[in-house]
Amino acid sequence: MTDQTPEPIKKVSIICAKGGLDEVYPALIMANGARMEGMEASIFFTFFGLNAIMKKMVKNLKVATVGNPSLNLAMPMMKMPVTMPFPTIMGAIPGVSNLATWMMKNEMENLDIPEVDEFLEMISDSGGHIYACKLAMDMFKLEKDDLVDSVEAVLTVGEFYEKSAGASIIFI
């Protein structure tokens, strides 16, 4: 039996494969938090996660209100019990997703959490790395120019793993 304290985490590589506002924020918060703790951090945006780093989309990410069974967490904001499911049919009404998105952005601002574009810049300025997946870029016919400036490089999966040497990998 050894009772040595475990080694602290020194490096994290986060893979963000989804592009909903509620799916992108966790990746940003985890990466920024890692930098704040003095760890190395990178985020690899792939598949629909590319939305978060596209110039045209970075300010337009949405919270999905259809097919999102976890939206019950938003019910208390409407003075309803948290155990009540968010009615799917309501989620399909035009504007409801925008409303949910607006509400989440509002709450985030209250918590001093920046919008996605500002957050990406903040992580990049802090020495964190923002990468885009080459395969997904090819699939969606995107060019490096379509991406925000805080994206450091477009990488193949192999290159991403190479840069992740010694890191804990987190998939979001």
């Binding site: 930098r35 001093d112 920046p114 500002e118 903040m122 300025d125 802090s126 020495g127």
Partner: peptide, 18 residues
């Protein structure tokens, strides 16, 4: 203050702070 506030209020840019 948060790092964001330090940056936004012009006290110190994030890069320099790090």
């Amino acid at each position: 203050p948060s790092i964001r506030k330090l940056n936004k209020s012009g006290v110190v840019p994030t890069k320099e702070l790090y």
